[in-house]
Design a protein around this nucleic acid. Structure first.
Lengths: 205, 205
DNA sequence: AAGAATTGTGATTCACAATTCACATTTTAC
DNA sequence: GTAAAATGTGAATTGTGAATCACAATTCTT
C-alpha cells in the first residue's frame, strides 16, 4: 500500500512540522528519519525525495522556529501600540508558546546546533539576535515616548527580557510541567517593569 | 601496553571529570564511552569496571555539577555577609563558571535529561531547585535586614536572578563566545538590583 | 609467596539509524 | 495518450557506539 503522492513543497512542510512535533515528544536525539517518515505516512527512503539529508531537515525546523518567533512579535505589534504592553503581551505569548513547544529550547540548546553542521550555530545566533533586535526596537520606542527609562541600555533591557522567559521555560520543563507559569508572569512582570520603566505606572496591571 | 591500575574510587573521579571535559568539548551527544576511555588512558571496556553503564557516568557528571554549584554558593557566603553583595558575587562567579563550562547548560538542557533514564529529570530538578533555594535564603536574609523589598516574592526574585545568568550563557555560547559578559554584568546588575532592592543603594557599585 | 580480588585488554556481538539504489507507480507536460 | 519527471517502496549497505566476555596482568591479603 503506497502513500499518495504529494508535491515536494507540501511534503517539505509536513516533514518539517512532523520533525518539530517529534522533537517536542522525544527531543533532538529522538529525532530520526524513520520517526519522521512514520508520522508523515511515508517510508523512510521517500523522505530523501524532499530533503537531501537529516541535517537539511534540522535546518528547516530552525527556520520554522525563527518564523514562529517573528510571528509572535508581529502579532503583538498589531495588538497594541503601547511599548510596555507590547512587551508584557510578548512575555505571556512567548511563555505560552514554550509550554506547548519544548522543541524550541531543545533546539536552541541542542548539541546538533553547536557541534553539528558548521554554520548551524550561526543560524541559531541569527534567529536569537533577530528576535532580540525586535525587542530592542520596542524598548527604543518606549524610550522615545518616555515610558522607559534611559539609564538602562536597550540591549541590556532586552537580554533581561529574555531572562524573564528562559528560566521559566527551564523550570517548567525540568519540574515535569509543574512550575506555575501564571504566577511567574504575574509576579515577575511588575519587578521587570520596575527595573526598566520610567516610573511605577498605575494602570499597567 | 597496559594502563596502570588505579583504584576504582579514583578512576571514577577521573572518568567523571573526563566526561565533563568531553561534554565541554563535544556536547552530550559527543560523549562516548570510547572518548572518555581515551582521555583517561584506558580501553573502553575497562570503563565498565568502574561504572555499570553510560547512564551511570551521566549521573555522576550531574552530581559533579550540582557539587560545583553548591561550592559556589558556599564560597560566596564565606566571602561577605551582605546579601546583595553575595548575590552580585554569585552572579559574577556563576557567569565565569559558565564561560568555562558549557557542559553545565548542555547537561541541563540535554535530551538525555528529559528522555533518558527516568528519574534523571527529577535529579536535575533537584539540583536546580536546591540552588534556587540557596538564592532564596540569601534573599530572605536581605529582607530581614531591610535591604531587599518585601513586595517581590522571594521565589520570583530568585527565578529572576537565574534570568540574569541564563540568557547570558546562551548568548555567549551561540555567538561563538563573542557576547560581552563583563558589560552584561555591569549593566544588568544595577537593573536587577533596582527591581528587588529596598531603595537605590549608593555604595553597592 | 600463594591465592583471591581487582583492574586492564582485545575481540566480538547487538541494535539502531542514515543513506543509497533499483524498481514501481503516479502525475505532469506536450 | 505517451513519454518524461516526480514521488513512493523495500531491500541492502554502511557506520557507530554500547555492552559483554574470556583471558591477562597487577595488587592485595594473609
Amino acid at each position: 500500500m503506497s502513500a499518495p503522492k504529494i508535491q515536494t513543497r507540501q511534503r517539505q512542510e509536513q516533514i518539517t512540522q512532523a520533525a518539530l512535533d517529534l522533537i517536542n515528544d522525544s527531543g533532538v536525539t529522538g529525532l530520526s528519519i524513520a520517526g519522521i517518515a512514520r508520522r508523515v505516512g511515508i517510508v523512510p527512503s521517500a523522505l530523501y525525495r524532499h530533503f537531501s539529508s537529516k541535517d537539511a531537515v534540522l535546518d528547516a525546523v530552525l527556520d520554522l522556529i525563527g518564523q514562529r518567533l517573528q510571528d509572535n512579535v508581529a502579532h503583538v505589534r498589531q495588538k497594541t501600540p503601547v511599548p510596555l504592553q507590547q512587551l508584557k503581551l510578548l512575555f505571556t505569548r512567548h511563555t505560552a508558546m514554550l509550554s506547548e513547544n519544548r522543541a524550541i529550547p531543545h533546539m536552541v540548546f541542542s548539541d546538533a546546533v553547536y557541534y553539528g553542521q558548521p554554520g548551524r550555530r550561526a543560524r541559531v545566533a541569527q534567529i536569537i539576535f533577530t528576535y532580540l533586535k525586535e525587542i530592542e526596537t520596542i524598548i527604543a520606542s518606549g524610550r522615545q515616548d518616555g515610558s522607559i527609562r534611559m539609564d538602562v541600555a536597550t540591549a541590556t533591557a532586552a537580554v533581561m527580557f529574555l531572562g524573564l522567559i528562559m528560566p521559566a521555560a527551564i523550570l517548567w520543563n525540568v519540574s515535569g510541567e509543574n512550575f506555575d507559569m501564571a504566577t511567574h508572569i504575574k509576579t515577575a512582570w511588575p519587578a521587570y517593569e520596575r527595573s526598566i520603566a520610567a516610573q511605577t505606572p498605575k494602570e499597567a496591571l
